[in-house]
């Protein structure tokens, strides 16, 4: 039986070389069991020029393969240039746009749009407000517990989506930590973030893996994995789950999630697919986000 649950591929958060980025999406278009693909630069406006020229081709290929395409946008908008980038994207017609900052949601108000996990929606009051403004789908922030999801899923008034796989986007800053790790400034960053397709590992002084740097963004070292919680969320009425791209076999990974959503055992083991990424699911279980809570 095929469930009505849908899979969304989140935007690539990392700075992949343009060709790699394009080929990744081409393969997703041709092979991946995802229903929707969200793409566009979220982290750093300095990266945009590199893959902008490839965007039209990628969108065409994805749409041609029957995928819904949503344009994602910057999470932190500080300068006029960044504001203008977002104004341009929101002024386009024909494509659904995902807001990751309140400013973008404002520009999109009054017409259908989606909200990404970088806007603070912690409760039903805020959710209702965005629904009233025209949001049709919200991918909820990382910190929410299963209990909170179950409250929000009642009378949500729009479609809820939950981050189900990938390193957790924990923070965003004006400062570039990737550049700082290389003793460079943000203005003269030499695009060192390109070297780390899954982010740059950050360890504690005792050598324990802790976080991952991605330019101005800080991610968890561990990889959020809610595959064992999918059924419970589906019972709450949540029917859309987001997979955040990593430099692994995302086609295989999407397949495994699809299998589990459809009540089958996954075709490939997640541990194997994740190529050494460590799993966590603590936020869902209302404990430290970095913890892995065993299934009951």
């Amino acid at each position: 039986m095929t469930s009505k649950a849908k899979l969304t591929l989140g935007p690539v958060l990392f700075n992949w070389p343009p060709e790699k980025w394009r080929d990744f999406y081409f393969r997703i278009a041709d092979e991946a069991a995802v229903d929707c693909v969200t793409l566009g630069e979220v982290v750093c406006s300095k990266r945009l020029p590199f893959f902008e020229p490839l965007m039209a081709n990628v969108i065409e290929r994805l749409q041609g393969a029957g995928k819904e395409v949503v344009l994602s946008t910057l999470a932190l908008i500080m300068s006029k240039r960044e504001m203008d980038i977002v104004r341009d994207i929101t002024a386009m017609n024909g494509l659904l746009v995902e807001a990751n900052d309140v400013s973008t949601a404002t520009l999109l108000a009054g017409r259908p749009h989606t909200i990404g996990p970088f806007i603070n929606i912690y409760n039903e009051g805020t959710l209702a407000f965005f629904a009233k403004k025209g949001a049709t789908r919200v991918c909820l922030p990382v910190e929410l517990s299963g209990k909170t999801l179950s409250v929000l899923s009642k009378n949500a008034g729009l479609e809820l989506e939950v981050l189900a796989f990938g390193r957790l986007p924990l923070a965003v800053s004006a400062r570039c930590y990737h550049a700082r790790a290389h003793s460079l400034s943000k203005d003269n960053c030499q695009y060192v973030c390109t070297d780390d397709p899954d982010g740059m590992d950050l360890d504690t002084l005792d050598g324990e893996a802790f976080l991952a740097l991605n330019g101005t963004q800080t991610l968890s070292y561990s990889c959020n994995n809610l595959i064992e919680e999918l059924a419970e969320m589906q019972q709450m009425g949540i029917n859309r789950f987001r997979l955040s791209p990593h430099d692994i076999d995302m086609v295989g990974l999407a397949g495994a999630f699809r299998d589990v959503l459809d009540g089958k055992s996954p075709g490939q083991e997640l541990e194997e697919l994740a190529e050494g990424l460590i799993f966590s699911n603590g936020y869902y279980h209302d404990v430290e986000g970095g913890r892995r809570v065993a299934a009951e």
Binding site: L76, E143, L168, L170, A171, S173, S220, V287, G289
Partner: peptide, 17 residues
């Protein structure tokens, strides 16, 4: 040093945000 209200580092390590 992070954009305020948009940082989950503390809850990632402690559960308290």
């Amino acid at each position: 040093v992070m954009a305020e209200g948009r940082c989950a580092l503390s809850s990632y390590a402690t559960g308290i945000s």
